[in-house]
Nucleic acid binder design. Sequence first.
DNA 1: GAAGCCACTTGAACATGTTCAAAAACAGGT
DNA 2: ACCTGTTTTTGAACATGTTCAAGTGGCTTC
Lengths: 254, 254
Amino acid sequence: MPTDTPAPQSKGEQTRALILETAMRLFQERGYDKTTMRAIAAEAGVSVGNAYYYYEGKEFLIQGFYDRMTREHAVEARTRMAGRTDFAERLQIALESWVDCAAPYHEFAAQFFRTAADPDSALSPFSNESHPARTCAVAIFREVIDGSQLGPKLDPELEELLPDLLWLHLMVVVLYWVFDRTEDTERTRAFITRCAPFVAKLVSLSRYRVFRPLVRDAVDMIQDFVLPTIGKAAPAPKPAPTATPAKRKRPAKD
Amino acid sequence: MPTDTPAPQSKGEQTRALILETAMRLFQERGYDKTTMRAIAAEAGVSVGNAYYYYEGKEFLIQGFYDRMTREHAVEARTRMAGRTDFAERLQIALESWVDCAAPYHEFAAQFFRTAADPDSALSPFSNESHPARTCAVAIFREVIDGSQLGPKLDPELEELLPDLLWLHLMVVVLYWVFDRTEDTERTRAFITRCAPFVAKLVSLSRYRVFRPLVRDAVDMIQDFVLPTIGKAAPAPKPAPTATPAKRKRPAKD
DNA sequence: GAAGCCACTTGAACATGTTCAAAAACAGGT
DNA sequence: ACCTGTTTTTGAACATGTTCAAGTGGCTTC
């Protein structure tokens, strides 16, 4: 399963990595659509069929980007957050880090996004519960929370929900970013600057009496309807849906 | 530019309509991917090239579905809402109507969605300001509001924003629906049933003192960052972005 | 070493979206 | 009827993602 720079580098794994590296380079140089599978194979010095031996299709190559970017983001966000204890600030840093890490790929980000929007695709972070990128990003947001001073007094259920909520928030930012055509995605950055304090305020206010019923409603709804969809079991969902059977065509190449 | 059943039906318009009808039928029978352009052309009794004379590409044919569904939804929602005056109820009806109208197309809805997620596509309701489907849906939500008893006392800016906000809410429901794999999309229906009263409560509470600063923040943010993106000018946006030039390759076939 | 197995590799063939130069049909003016 | 320009139509050609039967090479087993 390792897609980038793991341990033993057997013959096959070397070829697999070579193809991925080449594809990533060409994607960045020419864009996704302009990069043909033939070009990737030629540039990597292998045959077209060989690329398909390791990757189920062209789309599956972008998983490489996805994974790499997520790792970069994790490192970057942790580094920049170090020492900061204000929740809004930490959140903003986490989101800005994402934009910075994703910047090189903005031009063909649409391709990522189209893939993410396809419920049939194994690459979609929505339909694939254990999507590595999702798991990693949620972990970052956990740290965003834990490193700031607001933990103890929050509603415990909300507190547990928060990392996933912030991930959803990131998804909104990503949507915004994909459609952002301004220079250096300035608009998205401004959006983040405005959002972060607002979200922080929302979280902060959730402690107060007046907001309690509202927060409870929201939390319940998300637990019942959102988390199950992205692969987390909710404590006691109402309609108790029958377990959805996993659908696979082949012995899972990647 | 009429895509369905407009007035004069000149020779060319007849062919255009024939191709669209055939495509829609085949899409429904076999699904989007399984329906080839050759099959559409053959079934319609024209040549492949002819289809491309009227439609820029395969994707552009789904615009037909989009438009038709939107019209159906408008009629359906208005009919069902008639007489109801409770905001939550009207909202729920509007959303449920959408799910009902969209039901026949659920299987290949992913295709719609992937297209909508592509910022370069002229079909995306996000990037195309005057998207007919968007305009139509927003109008429906305007009626949802106007037909219920809560108008006068709301913050006027929020009131003006609300139709677009509800449209965004619909987009969330659509996202949920696309990924919903339950029988008859029961889960989405339950989701709507839970969401509608909650949204109504939010709107209703927005009147109260305590929520005022929060509402103001949210309204400002949406006016500055969300509306401009979907093509509505905000009163006084902060960064005042330079007008984004429209990008077109050809003299706009469809 | 021969035989057999298996991971890996190949490239031609296929399927399908898309383009384009040319033909056909049509409309209007003379 | 004939010329002329425009609209519509055609189908072959093209580009590219994908498949697959066959080949290659290394390894183990006899």
